[in-house]
Design a protein around this nucleic acid. Structure first.
Lengths: 192, 192
DNA sequence: TATAAAAGAATGAACGTTCATTCTTTTACT
DNA sequence: AGTAAAAGAATGAACGTTCATTCTTTTATA
């Protein structure tokens, strides 16, 4: 079997603790303990806590991408592609609730705001640009509302993220019908 | 002029610092300094930081309520009332961006999750129940989607909150048209 | 192959800093 | 003078990070 490399253990431990308790509920000593490693060891793999946090974010983005693209038909009609991507994203989050919680923590923090600002100003390579491409195309074809791209993002992801959060925090138990209805709501919200 | 009571200064200072830098970017010493007060003085008005944070939350909820209810016609058609409330809320947030940012910080923290759990389990009096009443009525009249109440909340507030965040973080400059379109998107998302 | 030397990885106690909170002193008011 | 309020120094716990040391693996030598 593959040796559970220490770096990976540290990352896993950080993911769990931060997802559940936030950045400030995950002291390095605790991350180390849960990873089965000494405190100082973390610093052999990551320059400091900030770097650990940012690298973990990148890893999650990279992990998400293939999951979402699986079975994506680039030539299908707009609506079909929209439903594919949004459904895949929601199912990803439901399958990996720690990832969802971590990403939310990250987005609601100075890290996330800075990273988003970079992306908007185009200073960033941009991983998940499938979403952007699709919405840009929808705007060009006038199938979505006449609004700046960034608002199309917020409007179409808003319901998805809020509902997913409800599920992951245990406020509802989503079933397949509810998931579908939620994606329909996202669609109804953006479509012209 | 009304004396700027020390308690109010402390609350205002905490609001500013927490809204801009989060709970952990607002040490008590800094809250005190900005309030023009000594560190120890805060503890004459608030038992501890947690209490300060929770009382501030309550104050904001109470401040919001009359603003939203102003001009609300309880007998108007469902759609009209929906547009009134959602527009009023969005305009409130745009007018008081610090309030918005504070409330978001609060909601994305253990405080907010606990408070929400209380509200759902009915252990809480519930301030802004206009929203709940309206959505419940919409569900009864089958004018909104057939989903649990909590999902109706998330679906109809999701776009509003996400778009407002974009505006307040400076990612877009909203104008009246965009605001209206956003509320329409919220409506399209929930309506059956 | 057996052994010594070097390199690399890991450890965990210790350090300096930050923070919420408490304690003691000073000020303001009646 | 006496009391309540305010001030701000002091406290101690918690944290991120460092570093001298130990343990483990790899390399070089015979």
């Amino acid at each position: 079997m593959t040796k559970p490399n220490k770096r990976d253990e540290i990352v896993r431990s950080a993911l769990e603790l931060i997802a559940e308790h936030g950045f400030h509920g995950a002291p390095m000593a605790m991350v180390a303990e849960r990873a089965g490693v000494a405190a100082g060891t973390i610093y052999r793999y990551f320059e400091n806590k900030d770097v650990l946090i940012k690298e973990l974010y990148q890893e999650l983005e990279n992990k998400m991408y293939p999951f979402i693209m699986d079975g994506y038909a680039a030539e299908a009609p707009f609506r079909v592609r929209f439903f594919h991507l949004w459904t895949a994203l929601m199912r990803y989050f439901i399958q990996y609730p720690l990832d969802f919680r971590y990403l939310e923590q990250f987005r609601n923090s100075p890290y996330g705001v800075a990273s988003r600002r970079d992306k908007i100003l185009g200073n960033d390579a941009g991983r998940c640009d499938v979403f952007r491409e699709l919405l840009e195309q929808g705007a060009a074809q006038q199938v979505v509302k006449d609004l700046p791209l960034i608002l199309l993002f917020s409007i179409s992801f808003g319901p998805l993220l809020a509902v997913t959060r409800d599920h992951i925090l245990g406020f509802v138990q989503l079933d397949d019908t509810m998931i579908e209805r939620t994606i329909e709501a996202c669609w109804d919200a953006v479509k012209r």
